[in-house]
Design a protein around this nucleic acid. Structure first.
Lengths: 224, 224, 224, 224
DNA sequence: GATGAATGAGCTTTCATTCAT
DNA sequence: TATGAATGAAAGCTCATTCAT
């Protein structure tokens, strides 16, 4: 934990002010990209620092110079991925649509984003296998994810106000349902496909499931 | 794959006829129990053969004698866990209840079972990280899981017939929704708890989520 | 500190009952012997596990199997060396001689033993550079070294009683003086030789110094 | 030995004429001060160039610029420390006192100086672990330390002449005894304290030991 | 002079697996 | 059957040193 006895920077844990060394930042970004793929593919234990280094121009030593340890690199990868989804999520302008429309939009966006970013999904799975012990030490992620809850809260309020939604919706519960349905579609596709001899990733299957989930969520929020 | 250079049994891939050595079977069962816990706790790469051996009276040599390799042991663990859920699931007598009642019963059972068997959930996560490459080589699991689909199909048919359910339900899609909602509750509890500073395992939270999921599913199958 | 997650024995920290595996004990003894020489020669940081392994038939891996870590091996070496001097020291029968005679005998023995066991002296130097942090965790050494103090105490009492020694001698202080004079002769021979262009290890120089130290100590305990 | 591939000074091996760059000298002095502490604390192998650089404003590059290598820095540290004790020792005006008084004064000074300069003592220990191979290559230290022998020789001569000291004293032998007793008090305090559960550095213990050593030496030089 | 980035060689340690008894 | 001992390959990590600016 206290390996910071070297001269090295080993930052990248939080948001640093725009660094003065653009080259180093590029290399760090490259390492992060490759590491994301490898950690997502093999997990934390299965990933090899050697493999990550071999996949780029940088030597293994540089990974330790910039990230301090395998765990440090893994944490940086987590922070980067969580940060990216936040940035993108904030571009959704849910307030501009009617409550039900906005909700459908959010569900479809979540579905599409998670399907397109299987690496992120897999990293979250890996982190759950490790009982979230790394994320628990990254407090910068806390408020980051409260934003979506706030969005849902105001959405529910608007829906309750105009009568298009039930008045007793719990935004966190709703978020959980959306997340569960979209997440599972990616996270468990391999065992599902293997056991049911099914193709969950075909365009047709994907479109059908997307519609089904959207319908499921919309039904759940509407008054009877 | 051709590690069978020992003189020993190394079966356990399928269902052998009741072994003539009850002692050996007990040992295998013990190993399996411990290995399940360790693989679920640490994943395939994180699990250590040494640790598994240490947690029992049996030596490491016995693991190799009975299961051939770490992967062989892991496959046996998977087979054992999937087999157990099949056995239990078949005790549900869904046909004795009205369609909606049966469905609610199935959802609650699934929720409770997965919550109570986090080890199994974690193993499925681990297997998905490994892209289900081990399960894909275990054909005995194929038909095993088709049973629940058949149950759902007849349940949907009964519901459609008596008008309590929409006539266009896809049993596989329904199964996916139920699984997703119940699975996620266990699989992602650590990241969710860490990020939202939330207690997902308290009795209150669990009961609420259980009711919410049941309601969600029931609404989704009923005609408007 | 808690690396004991392997199957391995990793004992040798204390006095185990005579082990049932004579072969393994022989190998451990061999490792200990080689490691003693290397740690004494290069210090804890300068010693290389690779070098120790190469100096014998055993592989590097076996060192970890038997001793757990580099530090564990180092501690075992310390315990072994301290244990050996105890065993030998206890063979001195100081009670059978007159006080002054016994004291001279003890001084000459200490001088000879330390000169003949430069490895031990160097290990003590190494341990002092490390501020005795390893020895501090080896409580079994405590009472072990109190024996020589007890010997000196009774010797001083006898000498005070028969008038051959001053009545105000402090055994611990006396032990310190003897140790200092004998230890320094080995510990600092290299810098002394280099700076004064002197040969401290020739038979003549050694004999003279031995006599000088003995005289110094005897003078210090006698009444004026 | 032939690392002088830089374009830089890399002197510091001897006494250079007063440098024209006072700033550079200050930096060198700073480096030396920090390096002394680190080498004394961790030994040659345990010391890290990174750590030394971190403890100052100066970067690692400066260490190599001024001292060429880790070994070069270590040699400079040794030279600096030995040089300092020479300077101070020469301020003792032993000739102004009676022989026994002067000797007592020298003993007490040596005891106090070594106690107050544990860093120096530790460096000498480190150098002895390395068999004085670095000091052996620093000829400037040779005559430096002959001075104290000369002082002792004339002191002994004076004592022999006025009958207060034995006529057969060997100054080198006497120096060795004084050094041994004072050095050991610092060098072995950690193992001694650990093994005998003793506090060797308390003011009381220190004062007692100081008196005891002085008495020991004075007794040894006086005629019976 | 001064600094951050880079590096290669080598270090300690780990782990699935097999052997001897 | 059962166990302690053994192993090779490879993993994570470190460190003195140098380069580019």
């Amino acid at each position: 934990m206290s390996w910071q006895e070297t001269t090295a920077p080993v930052g990248a844990d939080g948001d640093e002010p725009a660094s003065a060394q653009p080259h180093a930042d590029l290399i760090k970004a490259d390492i992060l990209e490759v590491a994301t793929a490898v950690f997502a593919e093999k997990g934390l234990n299965g990933a090899r620092i050697d493999e990550i280094a071999e996949l780029m121009r940088t030597s293994k030593r540089m990974i330790y110079y910039h990230f301090g340890s395998k765990d440090g690199l893994y944490r940086a990868v987590l922070a980067h991925c969580y940060g990216r989804i936040r940035t993108i999520e904030s571009t959704l302008d849910l307030g501009a649509r009617s409550p039900l429309d906005a909700l459908a939009h959010l569900v479809r966006f979540t579905f599409d984003y998670q399907l397109a970013n299987a690496d992120f999904i897999r990293l979250v799975m890996v982190e759950n296998i490790h009982r979230a012990e790394h994320i628990a030490q990254m407090p910068e992620l806390h408020d980051l994810n409260l934003r979506v809850i706030e969005s849902l809260r105001s959405l529910c309020a608007r829906g309750a106000a105009d009568g298009t939604m039930r008045p007793d919706m719990d935004p966190m519960d709703l978020h959980m349902s959306i997340s569960a349905l979209c997440f599972f579609n990616v996270s468990n596709q391999h065992t599902f496909s293997a056991i049911f001899d099914l193709d969950m990733v075909s365009a047709a299957a994907t479109a059908a499931r997307r519609a089904s989930i959207t319908d499921l969520i919309l039904r759940s929020v509407q008054p009877r």
